[in-house]
Computed example of a mutant assay.
Amino acid sequence: MANDAPHNSALQDFLVDAQVLLTKAEECLLHLQLIDNDPDACHCLNDTLGTLVTRAHTLGLVEVAAYSLQLQTLLEPAQVHPALQGEALQALESCLTLLAWQLELIDPHTGRLSLDTEEQVQLLDTLATALSPATALACASCIETRYPCEHPAPSLTAPLTAQSSALSSPAKGN
């Protein structure tokens, strides 16, 4: 147990910092809802998600790191090609709500998150479709089997698959 103390402390620090980062991401979203495609808000959102990815990955929180990385990867092109408006903002809001739930449901002792990925895949696909209809991440068959597609947009999913095996395996827990 003595060896777990530093990890638990780091995990507790992460959970506090993650809530701050999530709040910052939500503020960026609010800004984008007022001013579509604002470059500063897009950049802030991307940086915030990047920080969350790095911190989660460092602690081995694979599920949170993978989901945050997928969000960041989808949103990155929006800094160059404005697409954050209307349906994309609604989809982003749903994605951030799921991220908030994930952070709430992390076991504070083990750092594990035992959720299936079906909703995650659907929300990411909805966001991808809203950002660019040609880049949908998941087909109906893959959503049903709870696997992210690798066939519609290999350029988006290939790096994500390499980063996380959490999304390429069947659901755990629920």
Rank of each mutant, 00 (worst) to 15 (best):
A66E: 08
P82Y: 00
Q72E: 14
P159E: 11
L15Q: 06
E63I: 10
L96I: 10
E119I: 03
A41W: 03
H43C: 09
T126K: 04
P77C: 10
T51L: 12
T97I: 09
L160Y: 09
D4M: 10
F14P: 00
A66V: 10
P148E: 06
N8D: 04
A56I: 02
T73K: 12
A65Y: 01
S68D: 01
L115K: 00
A153K: 04
A41N: 04
A140T: 15
W101S: 12
Q122V: 11
D107E: 04
T110N: 04
S114R: 15
E104S: 13
T48K: 03
Q85V: 14
T161E: 12
G60H: 02
T54S: 13
L131P: 02
T51R: 04
A65K: 03
E76H: 14
I35F: 15
L34W: 06
A5G: 02
P133F: 14
L45K: 04
T161L: 09
V62L: 11
Y67W: 11
L123A: 06
A166L: 05
L69V: 01
A83L: 12
A2P: 04
H81R: 15
S9T: 10
L74Q: 09
R146P: 00
T161F: 12
E26H: 11
I143E: 10
A78N: 07
A153G: 09
Q79M: 15
A2R: 06
S132N: 15
C42K: 08
C28T: 12
